[in-house]
């Protein structure tokens, strides 16, 4: 029998987030295996009581929550912490969901920056008594930049592989395997090259905005 999944998109960006790109890919794989999937924006849910109740209802009716979020200050964005608090408050005894999978994307090229975020997700699972299915970390998420993974393709080959393997783990009702996690965490390019490209991009964007000379300004000093 197929299982139901609610994907919570935890990016505060109004649109075009890498969190959503990763979610969309995994959702597609799960759907092709006959699983039932739906997606909710945490940012939009927090904007009204009605939308938040809808999010909480979907959590109640799902077998699996997939929380996709960008790393903000080494952990989950504030909006995700708020949603987790509201889920905990509604289900103070035990959340009806069977498990949670966390998918993190981060600008840094080293996977270990996301350790604390995954630990917080695990702690959340303990507090609401649901299973922690696993955590997937995509380093150097800037290469996706909100595009569909199949469009970016070459550079995110390993992440596509990791998400496809994670989909099969989920379909089989298994925890996320280390092979999927390792494929996901493989940097799309070497960290030194990523830093060079990222730094050039910041300068290019500053030039476009006419702020090249102000990049290191200290407006509050």
């Amino acid at each position: 029998m197929s299982r139901s999944y609610t994907f919570l998109i935890g990016s505060p960006k109004p649109s075009g987030s890498t969190s959503e790109s990763l979610a969309d890919h995994l959702m597609g794989r799960l759907e092709s295996e006959g699983e039932r999937v739906s997606k909710v924006s945490v940012r939009k849910a927090l904007a009204s009581e009605e939308a938040m109740n809808d999010l909480l209802d979907r959590v109640q009716s799902s077998d699996v929550i997939v929380l996709c979020f960008p790393l903000y200050y080494y952990t989950l964005p504030a909006i995700c912490l708020e949603a987790m608090t509201l889920i905990r408050r509604r289900y103070s005894e035990k959340a009806p969901t069977q498990g949670l999978l966390a998918i993190v994307n981060q600008g840094f090229p080293e996977e270990s920056h996301a350790e604390q975020a995954l630990e917080s997700c695990r702690s959340f699972c303990d507090h609401v008594s649901i299973g922690y299915i696993g955590g997937l970390v995509m380093p150097a998420g800037g290469v996706v930049n909100g595009e569909p993974l199949m469009k970016v393709r070459g550079r995110v080959r390993s992440q596509i592989k990791g998400l496809n393997m994670a989909a099969m783990d989920l379909v089989n009702g298994d925890p996320i395997g280390s092979t999927a996690a390792k494929a996901m965490a493989r940097p799309p390019m070497s960290p030194w090259l990523y830093r060079i490209i990222a730094n050039r991009n910041w300068k290019r964007m500053a030039r476009k905005n006419g702020t090249m000379k102000q990049l290191k300004d200290r407006p509050y000093a």
């Binding site: 903000y72 200050y73 952990t75 989950l76 964005p77 504030a78 912490l81 708020e82 987790m84 608090t85 840094f108 604390q116 630990e119 917080s120 997700c121 702690s123 959340f124 507090h127 960290p191 030194w192 990523y194 830093r195 990222a198 730094n199 910041w202 990049l215 290191k216």
Partner: peptide
């Protein structure tokens, strides 16, 4: 302390301080 993280409001304000870092990446 929420799940080992700070509260929503503390974290919200912390995130707004991103500009206190420079965009450049260094090792």
């Amino acid at each position: 302390v929420l799940f080992g993280s700070p509260s929503y409001h503390t974290k919200l304000f912390m995130e707004r301080g991103l500009g206190s870092a420079l965009p450049f990446m260094i090792k």
